[in-house]
Structure formats: C-alpha cells, structure tokens
C-alpha cells in the first residue's frame, strides 16, 4: 500500500500512528493523518495550513473537552496519564483508508509517480464533515480550497520530491 510513498510521506504515516497511540485512540483516523503531515520536517503542510502540530493537537483536545462538556463532564484538572501501549496493531479507520487511496489520485493529478506528504495533505483536504480531519480543520478556520492552492504553489506543479 505504501510502496510509492516517499520518506516524508512515511514519516507522516508513522507520526499519525504515534499520535493515535499518544491519545489512546484505537484506530488511526484522518485527524491523526493531519497531525502526521504537520510532523514532517520542512513539509509544505505547516505553511500551507497556517497552523503547526502543537496548535492542531491542542485544537483536537479542545474539541474533545467540548464534547465531554456537552454531556456534562468536566475534565479540567483530571489526571490523565498515558495509556499503556496495546499489543494489538492499530488499524486505519475507513475514512483514513479512503484518504490513503486518494493520495494516489492526488499524486497522479500533480504528475508525480511518487506519493509525497503534499499529496497526503491534498487527500486530507478533500475530507468533508463529519469526517474528523474536516471537523478539526473547520475548528482551526482552515479553508481547504485556499490550502489546496497554497500546496500547489509551494510544492510546484511536479509535486514535492521529499
């Protein structure tokens, strides 16, 4: 599945896995993939999205706390140690699998044989609410169309090789 992924795109997927583990999520979702592309060094994601990894992580936590607050649970000040690593492998959500498939289309569209982190970001941008990455981007006031244009500009027409 990841044979055509560049080193940078692999970093993004590995980071997504790590983000899911850190949060205690049992599957790798599109929101983790979004965090993953933001973790790629020198990636176009940070300038194109206009947010960094720490801000995006914090925004996801705000959404979670708001959802808990909506059902009457206040987790302010609650001790939240890291959850032990499960021995089971962490599968992708179906939404995340769709994003991974869409990276191929994005790379082809950009005329690139290899799939880079910029193509992964473009595939994530196509997510629509209630997809979790789309919810997170909406919360961050990210405009997918504007980011798409920035990615194309920043990575050049041939797509980023890194």
């Amino acid at each position: 599945m990841f044979e055509q992924f560049t080193a940078g795109a692999r970093v993004a997927v590995d980071s997504a896995h790590e983000e899911a583990r850190l949060r205690g999520d049992r599957r790798i979702g599109t929101e983790h993939l979004l965090l993953g592309v933001l973790d790629v060094p020198d990636s176009v994601a940070v300038p194109a999205l206009g947010v960094d990894l720490a801000t995006t992580r914090a925004a996801l936590d705000v959404l979670d706390r708001a959802a808990l607050a909506a059902i009457g649970i206040d987790v302010e000040g609650v001790e939240r140690p890291p959850i032990p690593v499960s021995r089971k492998r962490t599968p992708f959500t179906s939404g995340a699998r769709s994003v991974i498939k869409r990276t191929v289309t994005e790379a082809r569209g950009a005329g690139s044989r290899r799939i880079g982190p910029d193509h992964l970001l473009l595939a994530i941008l196509a997510c629509e609410r209630p997809d979790p990455a789309a919810e997170l981007m909406a919360h961050l006031n990210v405009d997918p169309a504007a980011v798409r244009a920035s990615v194309k500009r920043l990575s050049g027409t041939g797509g980023q090789a890194a």
Partner: peptide, 20 residues
C-alpha cells in the same frame, strides 16, 4: 458528531483514569 466524539473521549478518559 458531538455525542459520538464524547463517546470516544470517554473511552480514553476511562483508560486514563484506570491507569492512574
């Protein structure tokens, strides 16, 4: 979307509370 997100957050919260 809010209710479902709350369920996911509760699962994590339960795990974290258990660890502590």
């Amino acid at each position: 979307a809010v209710g479902l997100r709350a369920v996911g957050a509760l699962h994590r919260l339960a795990e974290q509370t258990e660890v502590a």
